[in-house]
Design a protein around this nucleic acid. Structure first.
Lengths: 352, 352
DNA sequence: TCAAAAGTGTTATCCTTACACCCATGT
DNA sequence: ACATGGGTGTAAGGATAACACTTTTGA
């Protein structure tokens, strides 16, 4: 039962998605990168990462923390492993050096106070403009994503594949009667990759099912990519994984408080949740929900107001861990979208 | 931003937790193993695993599938990556050969019909007897786990550590007023490991916080381990990860049907859910829940009954994927346990 | 006839959602 | 005065949990 195959020639990269929310903008830290990517400027950027030092770090997480603390002066609070990626062909051909690269992705949350002028703190949604629905469904989806995916669906080889592609596109992007599910951020990115609609697909020479169809018809051009900043190697994929995971996590674990100061107003809390979930929330109900769930407790103190009536300061109520098995912020189920097959996108849950 | 550290000397193991449910018993496949473990017989068993062949397998998952299909004659349906473990000291000293071992764990679900006489299909709960609450909270917890953890809490160095340990034990095992959370299976195993209460801790010579206290007092013996079959290396840890993950997953993705034949009765479905969740469910409400959620649809057909009135056969309703963002079986929240600080365990949600 | 399993109905309760409205502060 | 944000009340609807009860088969 033991393999004869050697596992020499493997490098293990530890990659960190370091998240902070400043003034309602979710941000992730990036670093400059010069690799064999001859592509656009935007791939000259990377997630903070380092190679695992096999004998030095007792655990993978400690290795990651050491790396991050050496490279930045951040002190990481909450850290969680995301996923290990190891696709052989998921980097530009020039980078492949006869050795297999594994990327172990990590999610780390830091407080706003740690966001200095130092790093490159990018708006998370600049990588995934289609993920931000705080102002309602972005026009980008109706204008670019939906038509491009429709072409991809049409480019299928047979009707079985067409049905399959249509179902995947519908479910991932909440089209054709399906509802938007914020946690499917990775599905959406992967679908765009497979359909050749993000720059990395072109870079990696993905001639997957999407391209075979086109090339058979003599159309060898790539479709126009959907707007969005990209990253080197498979780092945008890791970033999408992190977004989906974090959106799920805040629903059943109180990780949101890792992003907030010890004391905060309820609106601050709401803005942070909204910025990550990517949806707008109903103020009055949000307040009652977190209060009712016992997630927070008031300190007597008041803010020096900014712009309105002074607000009470709240803090995380640690005892909730004893009281409920899965304490989180419980995002609302989105209402049923208008079932407009193929046509318009859901106009529902209008908060704006 | 790139490391000088080399990542030579790393082996990457792909480990599969292959799950099937037969007649209400959740089972996982194990294989024989002869390693440097000089311990008990029960560590002479392993999860099916193989080393990653760096240049051969295009993706990690394909590598795993190839391995499994070579070693067993199972065809895997649903496969999901769990976690990558890489603790340096999480194997017996004899196994450490100056190279770092990474374990990438996978969860795979197969149908009952695939369970032949061939493999060693172990009852999942034989590894974690404390996880099966279908007949109510197991007496093992009150009789063994709870007192042993109490001793561990008492062995703390100072009151801060004592408070910390008590909180972790309470939350993990639902003691002292906290509620049982089935998804914390990994937390529970890790806590027992750290407290020296499972065989692997002793094997790895864990002299963590648990033991320092005892040895300072001259008591150098290890506490009696909690009953439960163990596995080589870190495989029981992977198994605990899989249990927690699967318990979570069935709540919001319809993976349960990967374990059932294409057509099944509602009671069959209920038994499979119960066996994984580790709790007994209320029959009438369960039926209404899955029907109401649109998860299943009746075929007109009836079973050739077994033991009672013939039942209608149902099948998974694929359209539900379009209708709800997170279709799953929605386990009930457990009712509040009797808040018996330190003393008796929760007697609530008696179905038995 | 009884045990075992399949099913139906009803109720009380809680959570969620939506809507309407008032309060305190600074410009 | 009014804009901005803080904060309360209430009512409708849906989902859950807990009951009680009937039906159909095999032994």
């Amino acid at each position: 039962m033991r393999s004869e195959a050697s596992t020499e020639g493997v490098t293990v990269g530890l990659n960190a998605v370091i998240v902070a929310v400043t003034e309602g903008v979710p941000r992730i830290l990036s670093v400059p990168w010069q690799g064999a990517d001859e592509d656009s400027d935007s791939t000259r950027e990377a997630l903070p990462f380092g190679l695992l030092d096999p004998m030095r770090d007792r655990t993978l997480e400690l290795g990651l923390r050491r790396w991050v603390e050496e490279q930045t002066d951040l002190s990481l609070g909450y850290v969680e492993q995301l996923y290990t990626f190891g696709d052989r062909d998921r980097e530009p051909p020039g980078e492949r050096q006869g050795r297999r690269a594994l990327s172990i992705g990590y999610l780390a949350l830091v407080k706003e106070s740690q966001v200095g002028g130092g790093g490159r703190w990018r708006d998370w949604y600049s990588f995934f403009p289609w993920e931000d629905r705080r102002e309602g469904p972005p026009t980008l989806i109706a204008n670019s994503v939906q038509p491009a995916l429709a072409r991809w669906v049409e480019g299928s080889a047979d009707s079985g594949e067409r049905r399959n592609r249509r179902e995947r596109a519908d479910i991932a992007f909440g089209l054709g009667g399906a509802r938007w599910d914020g946690e499917r951020a990775l599905d959406r990115y992967e679908l765009l990759y497979e359909a050749g609609l993000v720059g990395e697909a072109r870079r990696d020479r993905v001639v997957g099912q999407a391209q075979e169809g086109l090339e058979a018809e003599g159309q060898s051009e790539w479709p126009n990519p959907i707007p969005g900043r990209s990253l080197c190697l498979d780092h945008r994929r890791i970033l999408a994984t992190a977004l989906g995971r974090l959106r799920g996590k805040i629903r059943y674990r109180p990780v949101i408080f890792e992003l907030l100061p010890r004391e905060f107003t309820l609106l601050q809390l709401q803005r942070v949740v909204e910025s990550l979930a990517g949806v707008g929330l109903h103020k009055q109900n949000f307040r009652r929900l977190v209060a009712h769930a016992g997630l927070v407790e008031g300190t007597g103190k008041q803010t020096v107001h900014t712009g309105g009536r002074p607000a009470e300061l709240f803090r995380f109520r640690r005892e909730v861990l004893h009281e409920r098995p899965a304490p989180g912020v419980g995002l609302p189920e989105m209402p049923e979208p208008a079932a407009t097959r193929g046509g318009g996108l859901d106009s529902a849950y209008a908060l704006h």
